[in-house]
Design a binder for these strands. Sequence first.
DNA 1: GCCCCAATGTAGGCATCGCCAACAACGTAG
DNA 2: CTACGTTGTTGGCGATGCCTACATTGGGGC
Lengths: 224, 224
Amino acid sequence: MPAPARRGYHHGDLRSALLDRAGEVVRERGAAALSLRELARDLGVSHAAPSRHFPDRDALLDALAVRGFERLGAALAAGAAPTEPFAEPLAASSAGSSAGSSAGSSAGSFAGRLTALAEAYVRFAADDPELLSLMFAAKHARGATPELLAAVERASGSAAALVAEGRAAGLVAAGAEEVAVTALLATVHGFASLVASAFLPAEAVHDVLGDTLAVLVRGLAAPR
Amino acid sequence: MPAPARRGYHHGDLRSALLDRAGEVVRERGAAALSLRELARDLGVSHAAPSRHFPDRDALLDALAVRGFERLGAALAAGAAPTEPFAEPLAASSAGSSAGSSAGSSAGSFAGRLTALAEAYVRFAADDPELLSLMFAAKHARGATPELLAAVERASGSAAALVAEGRAAGLVAAGAEEVAVTALLATVHGFASLVASAFLPAEAVHDVLGDTLAVLVRGLAAPR
DNA sequence: GCCCCAATGTAGGCATCGCCAACAACGTAG
DNA sequence: CTACGTTGTTGGCGATGCCTACATTGGGGC
């Protein structure tokens, strides 16, 4: 059991401290700017200490991506939750002035919850764009660690569960569940990715995203 | 006018050679693995020669991204082309309405051409995932070069032009053009991005993408 | 209760990298 | 033909990632 305090020789919980600090650096300056030695300096340990917890730089980055998918999964789950809105405890910095969600989709409806999930995704991307880049780095195509895949699976679980509910309520055509999940996830991820790379201004997303999802939801009941 | 051949002291066209070789490296091993010195070695020039053409590593990467958007733009334009694969040599204009070819509704319907454009995008992503990652790196959020922005604008031109045609044909609701372009681009980019990171297998894309676009196209005529 | 050992952190070295400054070859404008 | 801007070369500096040996710690087996 790791003790949080730093005593003498041993750090206490270096692994977590490394991930925490690395997360800050990635968010502020991007994954390319992350240096293990600088990390060690920041934490007051020797330059080789990180290697006791991560075999190499890439392993640390992978662990950071896993953490990212866990946070994203939590954010999506919170967004898709049917219950009443609390002021969200994390990821503040909302752009604010975006007008209230207008037509139709009340917070508890299928479309409403889907929209909330989507907006949580976009907020995540706007809040930590470099992390999203890292999470969806193309290098995963050349071999992703099992933990990563598991985290991705868990993160997409909220969307799958929501669609399953929609299916039960007759809002998603039978047999189209899997297609629906993929279509929705891809679409929402597209908006988030464009926001992260800043080609799509975060303020411009709200309306288009809502309209797009509304159209998709209508189509889910009667594909083809 | 640069001569292609390598003679004695001067290389001939080192800038292009650097970009070409860098493109290969990025495609094979990712942007993170790109080394200026290795590049120079590969091309048989000294390790400082690249600095004569790119002030630093990031500048080379940026130029590579610009090239990527140019290739993507060409691929999208080819995909969205009405019928025959050969329409016009080049000369993509920025704002020009360029009615040009007939208001033809030939073999390619609006939805068909849109789908072809989307599949060209996904093919691009599957063919060079690391390049797509580089093109949409989050670092652009911290400052994108004007050339990059221009290249992005040009690349998205095909989609905008296609939607404009759809508007003229009454398939896109009046006033919804801009929203339609954003929605379509985001959706298609989402699929492409997931394919590039390999979270969505390229073989699985075709059907879902087609269905998704069909639903969206139906919604374009009557949003909300 | 003690000691051994796996876990964790340290110290130093090596090859490589990006960037900089000084110098050299080239070729063209005048 | 010469002066000069462009392009490529050489050498050096500080920093990085990773490797190997060494040091300290604390807990588990006896």
